[in-house]
């Protein structure tokens, strides 16, 4: 078996007195698509933000690709190897779609503007919005904005992609266009951690499902066995609620 890409050790996180994460230990392996799910407030988004150290964790450590984030001298360097996609897209409103994508490759990786533009256009083509390259984010539909945001994350050729509820802010008819792009990524062997309520995606695309509740990991299974045969009562309840909406 290959070495883990992400290793989370004894990780705890507090917001004031509220314990968002309680002593998390888990590893993720390269080339896998893992869906993290659980009720709201279960800590899944916080866990995701710890993987690229957008949260200052109190205890424990995250090892990404052999490097400890806790003692990392150049966190920007590590972050540029991890792409992240946000619930509300977080495209930069004052930059065109193309400039949103090329900013980090030019500034962080030192690419020439020409190369960065070329790569960005290829990515936009891949997600199907190359005709929107010179528009501004607010001129795009939600689904187009999220696909642009995915391109921005991919532009750094990351080793890992983090998705934080990428479809939760979208109108129903736009969800599938984003999920299609994500499925395409997974099929091409991208390592992905996905926080989502889209159980269809978890069932069909994910290799594994991690179920969290109250800041702890309750269970981890292959996606097939998670849906067919959940181990914990809480996971059973959750699946019933989201799948059958009862």
């Amino acid at each position: 078996m290959s070495l883990p890409l992400v290793e989370i050790k004894n990780l705890s996180l507090k917001y004031g007195n509220y314990k968002a994460l309680k002593n998390i230990n888990i590893s993720f392996f390269p080339g896998k698509c893992v869906v993290i799910c659980g009720p709201s407030g279960s800590g899944k988004s916080s866990l995701l933000r710890c993987v690229n150290k957008l949260e200052e964790f109190d205890n424990g450590d995250v090892i990404f690709d052999g490097q400890s984030l806790k003692s990392a001298k150049n966190i920007s360097q590590i972050r540029s190897n991890i792409g992240m996609v946000f619930q509300h897209f977080e495209l930069y409103p004052h930059l065109s779609v193309l400039n949103n994508i090329t900013l980090a490759p030019i500034q962080v990786k030192g690419l020439s503007k020409k190369d960065a533009n070329f790569n960005a256009m290829k990515l936009l083509e891949r997600v199907g919005i190359d005709d929107q390259a010179n528009k501004y984010p607010a001129e795009l539909s939600g689904g187009q904005q999220q696909r642009a945001a995915i391109s921005r994350a991919l532009a750094l050729e990351p080793k890992l992609m983090l998705f934080d509820e990428p479809t939760s802010a979208l109108d129903p008819e736009m969800i599938s266009e984003v999920l299609k792009v994500m499925r395409d990524l997974a099929d091409n062997g991208m390592s992905m951690l996905v926080v989502t309520h889209e159980m269809g995606f978890a069932k069909d695309v994910a290799d594994e499902v991690v179920f969290m509740d109250e800041g702890k990991i309750i269970e981890r299974s292959s996606s097939k066995s998670f849906f067919e045969n959940p181990k914990s009562e809480r996971a059973k309840e959750f699946i019933n609620k989201v799948l059958l909406k009862i």
Partner: peptide, 25 residues
């Protein structure tokens, strides 16, 4: 805050984040 997170997540440092994202906006 999401704008900061987005900028940091692509590896921009604090100075670059202010220079390209925060101040122009």
């Amino acid at each position: 805050k999401g704008q900061f997170n987005a900028a940091f997540s692509t590896g921009l440092n604090t100075f670059q984040t202010y220079r390209f994202i925060v101040i122009p906006y």
